[in-house]
Design a protein around this nucleic acid. Structure first.
Lengths: 123, 123
DNA sequence: ATAGATGCAAAGGGTTTGCACTTGA
DNA sequence: TCAAGTGCAAACCCTTTGCATCTAT
């Protein structure tokens, strides 16, 4: 990312204003609000470069496309709303080490909570 | 699944003998050992029907294709080997409820441990 | 001016589907 | 026999890539 183009500016704005993990299609749709012409390719290319810059980091949600969020270098987990498919950050963690089976070497872990988000519960 | 075809017999055998979650490609490759002609389509169709019969259940591993395992109706989690990409069952669980943010309704959770399996550690 | 970034469309992977052929009961 | 099941190839969906064009510097 060596140039500040309107497209990348808008893609970054989208992350700042949504403040939650987004998948490529969500990014594209949100970017289109401010930008008449954006292509998927640009979104994917911007994601790739923003990850290299450590501005974004991928969020793996079981059974879903990859989501991306601001890379704030802190350990946390996620909540996936089964109703609107939005992903939210979850603070805190719990020790999972004791679950590791004998003979296996644990390097990392992910905890994904699923259910309904406040907005969907209100409906 | 109204008929017992050689293909489906072999696909079920593969799950019994491997005793771990498998993805469609793994199933196909393992089935080809016993069967000269098997197509991906058959594997996918068999998976779909075995899920309806509750003989299989999907295992969602973030950022990976769907895996499937015998549906034994018991709560457990998984270990993903970053080296060989094999998935293993992990017994036990830990309470995650307290992580749920205020206003959200928790319906389920997944814990994925990642690292190296015994076979890969030996190499 | 010019290398980097974009849009479009084509190409890749993994999964699904249509259709004529095969096969289990 | 004959409908269910299969293989093959085409179709899909999501992601990546090639290339001519555009644009930030």
């Amino acid at each position: 990312m060596e140039r500040n183009t309107r497209q990348r500016e808008v893609i970054k704005q989208v992350f700042e204003s949504e403040a939650r993990p987004l998948n490529p299609l969500e990014i594209l749709d949100l970017a289109k609000v401010s930008l008449s012409r954006v292509s998927v390719a640009t979104v994917y290319r911007a994601i790739k470069e923003l990850i290299e810059e450590k501005w974004l980091t991928p969020v793996k949600i079981s059974g879903q496309p990859l989501y991306y969020e601001r890379d704030r270098h802190h350990h946390h987990h996620h909540f996936y709303c089964e109703s609107c498919c939005k992903v939210f950050e979850v603070e805190g963690c719990i020790p999972v080490k004791k679950l590791t089976p004998k003979g296996f070497s644990l390097e990392s872990h992910d905890i994904l909570l699923s259910g309904r988000c406040p907005a969907c519960l209100k409906q």
